[in-house]
Simulated scan of single mutants.
Amino acid sequence: MRILILGGTGAMGVHLVDLLSKTQDKVFVTSRSERDSYENITYIQGNANQDEFIAKLMQKKWDAIIDFMVYSTESFKNRVELLLKATSQYIFISSARVYAETNPVITESSPKLLHVSKDEEYLSTDEYALTKARQEDILKISVEKNYTIIRPYITYSERRLQLGVLEKEDWLYRASRGRTIVFSEDMIDKRTTLTYGLDVSFAIFKIIGKQEALGNEFHVTNNQSVTWRYVLNVYKKVIENHTNKKTKILLQNKESFFKHHDAKYQALYDRFYNRCFDNSKISKLVDTREFIEVEKGLQNCLQEFFKNPHYIKINWRKEAVKDRATGEFASLLEIKKLKDIARYLKYRFF
């Protein structure tokens, strides 16, 4: 097959590309940066958010397009027909964050926030969960029915390790330097579902070319749900083994927590919910029992990360607010830019 992957260099995309490299398929992957092609994998440098770039790619016929891109709703509306007509199967990577609060378990037909929320201020935004739901609706009313909607939930990897709404730059950076992890008391005992990026990619890999997947939607999540307290304890064991120091934790109420974490809708309309999923639908195509168990997967990824740690960008204003709450101080030698030093000092002391 001729397969096109849009934005295939993230936590899930890299695993999918690796799986496809072991096939006879011809695989083309868009990337904003220049990358070396190899074997049956060809990288196409360009920005898949640009209409001209996409229009040129859509002049060719693809057996499958896997779309990892994040679009605005308007941008997606303008290109969806182009994407659908250029392929036999368009795989749209959505998100299980689209769902409203559902107990005890979420199925693919559970109500979405977009359709049941009464929060007019929230609904007026294009927040991620609303964006993905709106784009799913656009797909469903399209003339072409050759789409497959995939809804992963929280996906972790050796490069991405989340704790509630916090990325590794927000919590692991602090913990690895002996400072206190600042977390939410409203979140810590909520149940969540975490899935290793390779397992999600394997499920996508198995769905490519499946006739029964067309016009359909699937969760791709682990069978196991755990609390964030459980996740934190898994992380603690690895961190303490790595640093030989006891990991400290401060739990805050909503008001204090939102002072240094401004993505409140992600917390209010997702992480403050229990998120447990019924996987019976995807299990007809992929054996989710083979997905790696949460504790083992998180341990492996964190241990691998510590072999070559890399943080994208530290927000020193947020770090200052957290240090003010914990009574701690970051070494100014950690902070590379003068403007970040000034920002840290301002919010830490004044």
Rank of each mutant, 00 (worst) to 15 (best):
P152T: 04
E127R: 10
H15E: 15
V182T: 07
W316C: 05
M58W: 06
K339E: 14
L333G: 07
T227D: 05
R134H: 11
L333D: 15
N241R: 14
I292S: 05
E328G: 10
C301T: 15
L57P: 04
R289V: 06
N300H: 11
E328P: 06
I312T: 14
M69N: 13
Y71V: 01
G178L: 10
T221C: 13
K322A: 14
E120W: 08
V234S: 11
V321Y: 09
V321F: 06
T125F: 05
L4Q: 11
A96V: 06
L20D: 04
D189W: 09
R79S: 04
D67I: 10
G10E: 12
I314C: 11
L302Y: 04
L4V: 07
P309D: 08
M58R: 08
K61I: 08
T42Y: 05
N47K: 02
R275C: 14
E34D: 09
G327T: 13
V14H: 13
R32C: 05
Y90Q: 09
C301F: 01
E52I: 11
D287F: 08
L194S: 01
Y265L: 05
T9P: 04
I141N: 12
L139H: 12
D126Y: 00
E293T: 08
A325R: 13
K313G: 04
R2I: 09
S37W: 02
F306D: 02
R191M: 11
V321P: 04
K296H: 14
K77G: 00
L20S: 00
L130Q: 10
F277D: 06
L123F: 15
R134M: 12
A64F: 06
E304P: 02
Q45Y: 06
E334T: 09
E120S: 12
Y71E: 04
D199C: 08
I204P: 10
R275V: 13
A133V: 12
S283E: 15
F205Y: 15
D323M: 02
I335T: 13
G297A: 03
L84I: 10
V182R: 07
I239R: 01
Y122V: 03
